[in-house]
């Protein structure tokens, strides 16, 4: 079956919506009157427009406004933390914790390093006093990182899982 082109289809809709200028509109009307396919399609599109004449707004329940107003104070504020992202972050943090703990047990961080600031190559004009030297324990550093990770994991767990869960329970 022969069909009109997509460009003609679009032009028909522009014609129906009054988007063509006067000259183009007149030319297109002449084209329609001499082309059966265009004329038929125009009638089909007009039928769609006629169907939409019955389209009206849907109405919500009568107590819609009251229900929303009641929920305004009780509804939990929407969180920027999505559950999916939060769970992924939590898994990442826990995986990092596991990996670090594993490395810690192998003794890889047991060494210590001493930093002597006097070895720096600063000119004597600036440095007139003896600078201290201090020792860094790898194990201590890693323990601090683990501690920070545990705190982070707890915050993520609270924001993404525990808090939404208990808020839902309170609402139920």
């Amino acid at each position: 079956m022969k069909r009109i082109s997509q460009a003609q289809e679009d032009k028909l809709l522009d014609y129906l919506d009054g988007n063509l200028d006067a000259i183009a509109e007149k030319q297109f009307e002449d084209e329609i009157s001499s082309n059966v396919l265009l004329k038929t399609r125009l009638e089909e599109l007009l039928a769609v427009n006629a169907l939409f004449q019955n389209l009206s707004l849907e109405q919500p329940s009568k107590n819609f406004t009251e229900q929303v107003m009641m929920k305004l104070d009780t509804a939990p504020a929407s969180s920027a933390w999505s559950i999916r992202n939060g769970v992924l972050l939590l898994i990442g943090v826990l995986a990092a914790l596991g990996a670090i703990s594993l490395l810690l047990t192998t003794g890889i961080f047991d060494s210590t390093a001493t930093i002597n600031l006097n070895q720096s190559e600063l000119p004597n004009k600036i440095l007139r006093e003896q600078l201290p030297s201090f020792t860094l324990s790898g194990k201590l550093m890693i323990n601090i990182i683990i501690l920070l990770n545990i705190v982070l994991a707890w915050i993520v767990l609270d924001r993404t899982i525990l808090r939404p869960y208990f808020q839902r329970r309170m609402q139920a």
Binding site: L57, E58, Q59, P60, F64, T65, V68, M69, L72
Partner: peptide, 21 residues
């Protein structure tokens, strides 16, 4: 003035519900 929100809801609830529906 929280109650003013009820007026906004009244003005837009039909469209909002129609879109959702």
């Amino acid at each position: 003035e929280q109650n003013a929100y009820a007026e906004l809801i009244g003005r837009h609830k039909s469209y909002a519900y129609t879109i959702a529906f």
